[in-house]
Design a protein around this nucleic acid. Structure first.
Length: 211
DNA sequence: TGCCAGGGATTAG
DNA sequence: CTAATCCATGGC
């Protein structure tokens, strides 16, 4: 994994940074990007920013009709509106321990209990918002791992259960894992723009196997 | 014009 | 437990 990171850094230069300025803004992006092209997410985020400034309290004051209309460009608007509301409420009012006080497992369980937050969103939130060391087995990541010769499962969770321990044992720092996540997505987007997944490996110089 | 995107919840088998 | 289906929109 560290070798892949080295290759990605050589190939891409600086790791791309997700332009979110607050934790809540970041989570809005995580929810809105679910199974959705980033171009659509950008529009929805711009509208959300204008309407709420990414203040959770302000978002909670919107009606369902207002919120769904705002995020409509990102698709799945009813489900995502519910999810954003649930996270905002949890973030502001979760009784007992704050997220920072929870250990990795408890934080993951808490995030997974929220509607619209599944394994991937929970892990990305833990990594990017709460500073936890997590590798993200998203669609791009699984494709890359497969081409690099790893035994990838059929979905996020099966792949995570199969590979997480080994990856964790490499002892990558939090910053390295953040870079990896950003660069794997960037490499995936470039491969897509270049015309297809058969170019994914060659584009980033990893492997020759088909996705 | 149909396929699909950085998923997730629910239902059927 | 695994697989299929639905959710919604816009780009290519």
């Amino acid at each position: 994994m560290r070798d892949i990171l080295t290759i990605l850094r050589t190939e891409l230069g600086e790791a791309p940074v997700w332009p979110a300025q607050t934790p809540f803004e970041y989570v809005c992006g995580i929810v809105l990007v679910q199974n959705t092209a980033w171009t659509n997410v950008e529009r929805a985020l711009a509208r959300l920013r204008e309407a709420t400034g990414f203040e959770a309290e302000k978002l909670l004051r919107l009606t369902d009709a207002e919120l769904t209309t705002l995020i409509r460009p990102a698709g799945f608007m009813r489900a995502k509106a519910r999810s954003l509301r649930a996270f905002a409420t949890w973030m502001l009012y979760a009784d007992g321990k704050t997220a920072e006080e929870l250990d990795d497992g408890a934080l993951r369980t808490a995030l997974l209990s929220l509607p619209g937050i599944g394994p991937e969103s929970a892990d990305v939130t833990a990594l990017m918002v709460y500073g936890r060391r997590r590798f993200i087995f998203d669609a791009y990541g699984r494709r890359l791992l497969r081409q690099a010769g790893h035994a990838v499962g059929r979905d996020y969770e099966t792949t995570r259960r199969a590979l997480e321990a080994d990856i964790d044992a490499e002892g990558l720092s939090h910053g390295e894992l953040v870079d990896l996540h950003g660069m794997i997505i960037e490499a995936g987007k470039r491969a897509r723009a270049a015309g297809g997944w058969e170019l994914y490996g060659p584009t980033i110089g990893i492997g020759t196997r088909q996705a």
